[in-house]
């Protein structure tokens, strides 16, 4: 109950803060659409060259994939691992440690409130993109429900993964190259760059053993397809399993990390 109240309060706070910076949030989303539009244009033009479809993906399906991509990406944004350096350096963390609740909950609560604002701001952008790129999208209600659950699952999963990654900062401050390598792997193996179905077999096989797809490609495919009812259930189960694993890992890593912390100006 305490957690729910905490989430609700932080969420409300984030919602009202971010609605004040509407223009900022809007700009942020507009800046983000450049990336999927690039992928969309590149892959649709290849599909057209291949005679209208690439491994079953038509330009319309690519359009649907990358438009849904923008929402999943927006849901995906969470506390950056680069932020830990500042939290540690300026002593913000000391304040967090005094509170009776694990600090990850503050991030989850605050960012999930921001997501509500993001979704509202995203709607007009999605309409504009749909008018320009004409997506083929025809989901069943099972797909819609799975999608709705999966985008929040993706948010939770990525928040925890990046949190664990950020904890490395407690051991070394030279983290940038490590983080960049992580993000590069995520880009290639999550479905962010291109639907994983189109990757070479070995890359798909590697991706199956990593959590990236659950936090990006799966929610998109859940809505856009092609996916069977069984695929939906399996994907959700896999996502929940990854959430559980990363939560355990986070709890363990945090206990060790925080021991290394010495407040700078607490």
């Amino acid at each position: 109950m305490t957690y729910l109240r905490l989430y609700a309060t932080l969420g409300r706070q984030a919602i009202s803060t971010n609605f004040q910076y509407r223009l900022n949030n809007f700009m942020f989303l507009v800046g983000m659409i450049a990336e999927p539009v690039v992928y969309l244009v590149v892959w649709s033009s290849i599909a057209e060259r291949q005679g209208g479809a690439l491994d079953g993906y038509t330009p319309g399906m690519f359009a649907a994939y990358y438009i849904v991509w923008t929402l999943v990406r927006a849901m995906n944004i969470t506390f950056t691992p680069f932020g830990w350096e500042e939290r540690i350096r300026d002593g913000t963390l000391s304040g967090h440690l005094l509170r009776p609740i694990h600090p990850v909950h503050y991030d989850i609560g605050w960012f999930s409130g921001w997501k509500v604002v993001t979704i509202v701001m995203w709607l007009p952008i999605a309409v504009a993109l749909a008018l320009v790129f004409e997506p083929t999208l025809d989901p069943t209600w099972q797909q819609c429900v799975t999608f709705f659950v999966a985008i929040w699952g993706a948010f939770l999963l990525r928040t925890m993964l990046l949190w664990v990654l950020g904890l490395i900062t407690f051991w070394t401050t030279r983290v940038t190259a490590m983080f960049e390598a992580y993000f590069a792997a995520e880009l290639l193996l999550s479905g962010r760059l291109v639907p994983l179905d189109l990757m070479p077999g070995w890359a798909r096989e590697t991706a199956r053993w990593l959590p990236f797809e659950s936090s990006f490609g799966f929610p998109i495919t859940a809505l856009v397809g092609p996916i069977s009812g069984r695929g939906l259930a399996e994907g959700l189960a896999r996502q929940f399993a990854w959430i559980a694993v990363s939560a355990l890992f986070l709890a363990w890593a945090w206990r060790h990390a925080v021991k290394r912390y010495s407040a700078v100006n607490g």
Binding site: Y21, L23, N24, N25, M27, F28, V30, G31, M32, I33, A34, E35, V37, V38, V41, V42, S45
Partner: peptide
């Protein structure tokens, strides 16, 4: 408060990775 404009710019910057001829005319 221009922080997000910076994001807008970095986002747009990624589009430079491919020759502009790939994109539709308006883009």
């Amino acid at each position: 408060n221009m922080d997000m404009v910076q994001d807008l710019f970095t986002g747009m910057y990624r589009a430079g990775q491919y020759p502009t001829g790939v994109y539709p005319r308006w883009l």
